[in-house]
Design a protein around this nucleic acid. Sequence first.
DNA 1: AGCACGCCGACT
DNA 2: GTCGGCGTGCTC
Length: 805
Amino acid sequence: MKFASIIVDVPAMQTDRAFDYKIPDEWQELITPGMRVIVPFGPRKVQGFVIETKNHSDFNRLKSITELLDLTPCLTPELLQVGHWLTEKTLCFKISAFQVMLPAAMKAKYEKVIRLARDQELVSLPEMLLPYFQKTDQVNLKDIEKTISLAFIQKQIKLGHLELIYKVKQKTNKKMVKVIKLNVPVSQLEQLINELPSNAKKQMDILNYFKLNSKSQIQLQELLVEAKTSDTSVKSLISKGVLIEESKEIYRDPYQDRNFKQTSSLQLNQEQQNAIAPILSSVKHSHHEVFLMYGVTGSGKTEVYLQSIEEVLKNGKEAIVLVPEISLTPQMVHRFKGRFGSQVAVLHSGLSIGEKYDEWRKIQRKEVKLVVGARSAIFAPFDNLGMIIIDEEHESSYKQEENPRYHARDVAIYRAQLHKCPVVLGSATPTLETFARSQKGVYKLLTLKERVNRRSMPGVDIIDMREELRNGNRTMFSTSLIEKLQDRLSKGEQSVLFLNKRGYSSFVMCRDCGFVIQCQHCDISLTYHRHGQKLKCHYCGHEEHMPKVCPECQSEHIRFFGTGTQKVEEELVKVLPESRIIRMDVDTTGKKGAHEKLLTKFGNKEADILLGTQMIAKGLDFPDVTLVGVLAADTMLNLPDFRASEKTFQLLTQVSGRAGRHELPGEVIIQTYAPEHYSIQLASQYEYDLFYEQEMLLRKNHAYPPYYYIALVTVSHPEITKVVSVTEKVSQFLRRNVSNETKILGPVASPIPRIKDRYRYQCMVKYKREKNLNETLRKIIEHFQQDITSNDLLITVDLNPSTMM
DNA sequence: AGCACGCCGACT
DNA sequence: GTCGGCGTGCTC
C-alpha cells in the first residue's frame, strides 16, 4: 500500500478525478480510504480525500502526501460509495459530493502568506515592506495587498526577497480543555501536603481540594476557581509529578441547559399498532422496504416513530430521523430527547459550525445511537443503520437547491438499501410522487385516519374576498375573521394568523401609469421595507430609496402594494387595538434563538395573536389556539410552477392542523380570491384522496411528474444573445440524443429571467425512461467547458427539480 | 481554482 | 527589442 488515490479540493471539471500520491513510510499502515489529507497540488497545497490505497500507480512523477488530517476515516466505505452515487445522480463534482456529507467545520480554508525569504536580511528589504516584518516573519497576503500592489510583491518574490507560501487551514476544530489529573493515590495526599514547604500555601490548597472532594480529575479552569489559586501553583505541582495535565475534547452542547422530561411509550391505538407491525418486522428481519405512513395531523405518527426506534436500538442498531428545518420545531426535539435522552444527537441549521461538528463527532465516536436533524443529517456516519425516518416527507426543504442538488429521500432510500433497513416516510399530505408509488405498491402504504384524541378536524370556512370587496370591505380582514378574532379575545383564547408571503411581496406600483419598480440587476420587483423607507431586492440585495414620484410619469400616486407582515400588524392594531400581537418573520427571527423565544412567549399566553409567514405553519402545538386565519390562501397558486396547487393544498392542510389540537375545538378561516379552486376547496374538506385524483389527472394531461421525470437545464450569462444561443444548442443536442417518447421544452426564459445582471434561459426535459440522459447532460457541460471556465457561462442541471425558478 | 506558458499588439 | 494582454493546458 504505497500509493493513495486522492480526490483534491478543486471543484472543476478538469480536476474531477483521482490523483495518485505516495504514502510516506510512517503512514503506510495508517492511511485508509475515507481519510482527509493535505497534498501538494501544482504550486499550492490542498485538502483531499483518500478514496483508495494501492500498490501500484501508472504515474511516475508522484508527490507525497504532506499531512494526515484524520486518524479515523471521516467517510466510511459506505459513505464513499454514497458519494460516488451522488456524483452520478446529481452530476456534481466528486469533491462536492464528499464535502456535502461532512459538517462545514471539516472543509479546509486556504490562505496565502508572504514570508521573508530564507537567508534574507530584513535591512535589505525595500523600505515600504519594513513595517510588515518588524514583529513577525509571516504576513497574510490579504493584509499586505491593501497597501502594496500585487505586482510589487510579485517582483520581490522574483528577486528572492520574499517567499509565497500556501496554507491550508482547518475551520473550527475540536474544542479542547485542559484537565488536571491526580498522579498519586489519594491516600498519599496527606503525606504530600505535609512534605510541601511551608510557604507553598497555594499548592496545599490544591491538594486539599483533591483530598476533600475525592476527585481524581478536574478541568483546569474549574480548579483555579474552586481552589482560589493560579496556574503557576498548578504548574509546579505538575513539575513535581504530583499532578498531570491532559487535553481533553469537550462538546459544545447546544441543549446542555435544558431539562428534558423523561417520557415513556404510550399505548398505541389499533391503527397505530397496524401501522407499526410491518415496520417492526422489517427492522427485525433486516429487510429493506419503504413505508409511506400516511396519517392525518394529530394521528400520532411521532409515537409510531418513537416506538419503532426503540426496537431499532434494542437490536443494537442506529437510526436517522429527518425533520424539516428542525429549529422550527423545538417541540419535536423535546419529544426525542425526552424519550432517548443522551443517545440523541441533533443536527440543524440553528447550530454554530462548531456545535454541528461536535454533534457529528458524537455520531462518529458511536456515543449516540440516533440523530434527529434537517436534510444533511441523512449523511450521518453511522455504520449499522437500522432505520431511516423522514417526517413531513412532502417538505421542499429536503431538496438541496445548490450543488449537489440531491433529495434527502433519494439518499435515504439508497443508504437503506445498502444497510438492508426500512425507510419510513411520514406525511398527512404526501407528494404525488410518493403517494403514486404507494398506490403502485413500490412503497408500502400505512394509513392513520383517526386522530389520537378522537377530535374531528377543525371546521374550515372559505371566505371569498371579492365578495368582501363588493360589500365595501377594503381591509385585508374579512368581517367574519374580525368577529372571530374578537370572540377569541374576549374568551382569552389564542389565534394564529398566517400570511402566505411566497410570490406576494410588497411591490411598488404607480397608480396612474401602472409602472412597477424593478431591480436594476434582476427581473423582479423590489420589495418595500418600512424600515428606512427603502426598496430592496430579495435576490441580489440591491437597495434604493422609495421615490417620491413615479420615475415613468412623474405622478405622485406611487404606492406600495401587496401585504407584508408589518403592514398586517399595523392594520390589525387599528381594528383590534386591545390585542397583543407577536409577529414572526425574517425581521423578528433573525437572531439565533429569537424564534424559540417568540414561540415560548406565545405559549406562555403573553400574546393573543401570533402573526407570521410560512415558518409558523409547521409543528406548532399550543393548547389554547382555537382560531387559525389564512389571510391570502391563493397567492402561491399564481406561481409559475406545476406544483403550485399541490403546495397550496399541503400548506392549507398544514395550517388548519394548528387549530384546536387539545380540549378546545378549533376553527379555520381561509380568505381567498379564488374560493372555487379545487386545491382550496378540497383542503378545506380534508380530502387528500380526492385532491390526489384530480391533480393526477392534470399531471397526466400535461406530462408532469409522477407520470414523467423532469430534468431542468438552466443557462446563464451576462449577455442575452449568448444565453439564447447556448440554450438553443443545448436543446438541439438534447433532441438529437433522446428517445421519441421524451419531450424537450424550450429554450424559454426562466421564470426569473435575470438575476444579478445575468440572463437566464432554460430547457426542460420530460422523460419516462432515458438510460443515457445523465451521460448526455454531462456531454453538454463538457462541450461548453471553455465558455464555462473562461467566458463566465453557467450551466446548471437539476434532475428532479422541486421548483422551476 | 490557480498558475505557467506562449503567442500577439503597444510601448520605452 | 520588451512589457503585458489573456487564450490554452496542466496539476499526481
